[in-house]
Nucleic acid binder design. Structure first.
Ligand code: FES
Ligand code: FES
Lengths: 141, 141
DNA sequence: ATAAACCTGACTAAAATAGTCAAGTATATA
DNA sequence: TATATACTTGACTATTTTAGTCAGGTTTAT
């Protein structure tokens, strides 16, 4: 089970942005330089974040991005959802009664994978951007 | 974040095996048929499980595999470890002081990913093969 | 002897990931 | 108003990982 760079970068970038938020829009260029993430890749990521109304864009010179909600209202779930970083413990569709590989019923371990998925998603639902920033400040002391 | 088939199959196969354990060795052929997993793939998986002493093999006709420990002593952690299904939330090496992409320090969100990794691994450490079988019996009533 | 079943290593098609690249559009400011 | 900064969009691609397959064994009960 791996967390993809896309998901990891999305959170890193938003934490970076959130620290400078309320002052000025933060440009992707700055985030790119500070966090060492490819600018072109960031652009893809922020396009998705904007579509899901997690950030707002300010075009033109001195532009950049601003948070569109309070930091405590942005959970990891929302971020991951926006960039299509989803937890998948199975191959088969949830809606369908059928199992993996076209089997007619769900497998012996199906319930386990559901539990696992919930366990992980719970973590994402509990952590907000604000938590991350606080956590970070304390660490710096 | 996806669970790979290899990890999923390893657990499925062991649950299947554990149900018939204590009677006779269980052949991979049977597991393959019952669970709909490629025989050749199962062989790869069981080779690893045997090397980590989770199962024992019985060669020749009427042969197969038997659990090498009690079902309550085999945790998901042990199974995943055996087949190299590991949880990885970061790219950078844990031992190294360096961050991802060759950065000289760890990133802003590093602590978060450590927490996430622990959170997931906790789940794997708590679940034993016995739990899965019990769970399954109850469900069948 | 033979068939069932384990054992091993090499190989490969397909999918996913982690980007890059090219060609724009909007706007603050000099 | 010229221009540089920064967002916007979509297509393209190299690399890696996954999920197997395939071809050849070896062991042993009957
Ligand atoms: S995981 Fe798909 S059938 Fe259980
Ligand atoms: S995840 Fe590698 S530096 Fe934090």
């Amino acid at each position: 089970m791996k967390l993809t760079s896309k998901g990891r970068y999305a959170v890193m970038a938003l934490v970076d942005l959130a620290r400078f938020n309320n002052i000025n829009p933060v440009s992707l260029r700055d985030i790119s330089l500070r966090q060492g993430i490819s600018l072109d890749y960031l652009e893809q990521i922020f396009s998705k974040l904007r579509k899901k109304e997690i950030v707002q864009s300010v075009r033109g010179i001195q532009g950049g991005y601003v948070l569109n909600k309070k930091a405590n209202e942005i959970k990891l779930t929302n971020i991951f959802d926006a960039v299509d970083e989803k937890v998948k413990t199975v191959q088969c569709k949830k809606e369908s009664k059928k199992g993996c590989n076209g089997k007619s019923t769900k497998c012996l371990t199906h319930n386990l994978w559901d539990e696992l998925e919930n366990h992980i998603n719970n973590f994402f639902e509990q952590k907000s951007l604000e938590d991350l920033i606080k956590d970070n400040r304390e660490r710096r002391i």
